[in-house]
Amino acid sequence: MKYLFTYPEKCTGCRQCSISCALNKLGECNPKKGAINVLRDEFERYEIQFVCLHCEDPECVLVCMKSAITKGEDGIVRVDKEKCIGCRMCVVACPYGAITSFEGDIIKCDLCDGEPVCIKYCSTEAVVYEEENEELMDRRKELAKVILKKE
């Protein structure tokens, strides 16, 4: 399957990924409503992206009482807006901080059904969309450990 892979060491913190995501999905420029988020702090000197990993066995799917979140045959984990009641359990459950919510609306990456918009606006290839392979998945696991430690 193809996934978004992130490289925090290349991320410059510009947030064009988040802004383009929100513009594409919601028609507004708002980095806080992007399904990909950049956590940055110039004083602590880091930039790091948060985006759904479309886990093999997703915590968000497990905790959803309304079965509004499902992992499709294409491997993409999606939220069904009709079923979602905005309880935010998925937001709490995601170990990677990859789901957010605004006024009851859940914001989560769906890989734009296989054509993610965000990658087009990254000038340093800090977020790329690639077919999985062992090396990339190992790297992603290492990165996940870093995120888990930060949380």
């Binding site: 594409n24 708002n30 087009k120 606006y121």
Partner: peptide
């Protein structure tokens, strides 16, 4: 948290992609 609404989102996405 108030997003800036864009009149023609697709046009802006396209223009910025070309400009980039």
């Amino acid at each position: 948290t108030i997003g800036i609404e864009i009149a023609h989102p697709e046009e802006m996405l396209k223009t910025v992609e070309e400009l980039k």
